[in-house]
Amino acid sequence: DTINITLPDGKTLTLTVTPEFTVKELAEEIARRLGLSPEDIKDTHNGKTLDPSLTLAEYGITPGSTITLEIK
């Protein structure tokens, strides 16, 4: 299953994830792909900052969802 990550420059990154991924694991994968530190990444969905300890499923993030990435 894939989700879309909207980057600060407007580009989109597509990642393969499972509903059990935590937001922290997602940030780590994004950081790895972009050459950043996971601590520099802030993920938001529907205007809410995502708690790193919760899973994508707990936020109702499903395949095809879009998450907005902010760099701290």
Rank of each mutant, 00 (worst) to 15 (best):
D1Q: 11
T2C: 08
I3V: 07
I3L: 08
I3A: 01
I3P: 00
N4E: 07
N4F: 11
N4P: 01
I5C: 04
I5N: 01
I5P: 01
T6R: 14
L7M: 10
L7F: 13
P8E: 08
D9A: 04
D9P: 02
G10D: 03
G10Y: 04
T12P: 03
L13H: 05
L15N: 00
T16W: 12
V17Y: 13
T18A: 06
P19R: 05
P19A: 07
P19Q: 07
E20Y: 09
T22C: 01
T22Q: 02
V23E: 00
V23A: 02
E25V: 03
E25G: 04
E25K: 07
L26S: 00
L26C: 03
A27C: 14
A27V: 15
E28R: 05
E28V: 07
E28Q: 08
E28A: 08
E28F: 07
E28L: 08
E29Y: 10
E29Q: 07
I30W: 01
I30V: 11
I30Q: 00
R32G: 07
R33E: 10
L34Q: 02
L34V: 05
G35E: 06
G35L: 04
P38R: 06
P38F: 15
D40K: 09
D40V: 14
I41G: 02
K42G: 13
D43N: 15
D43Q: 15
T44G: 12
H45Y: 14
H45C: 14
H45V: 14
N46G: 09
G47D: 11
T49Q: 11
T49M: 07
D51W: 04
D51R: 03
D51H: 04
P52T: 13
P52H: 11
P52D: 12
T55W: 01
L56F: 02
L56M: 04
L56H: 00
E58K: 03
Y59A: 15
G60W: 02
I61L: 07
I61V: 07
I61S: 02
P63N: 10
G64H: 04
S65V: 09
S65M: 15
T66R: 03
L69D: 00
L69G: 01
L69A: 06
E70V: 11
I71D: 05
I71K: 04
I71L: 14
K72S: 13
K72H: 13
K72L: 11
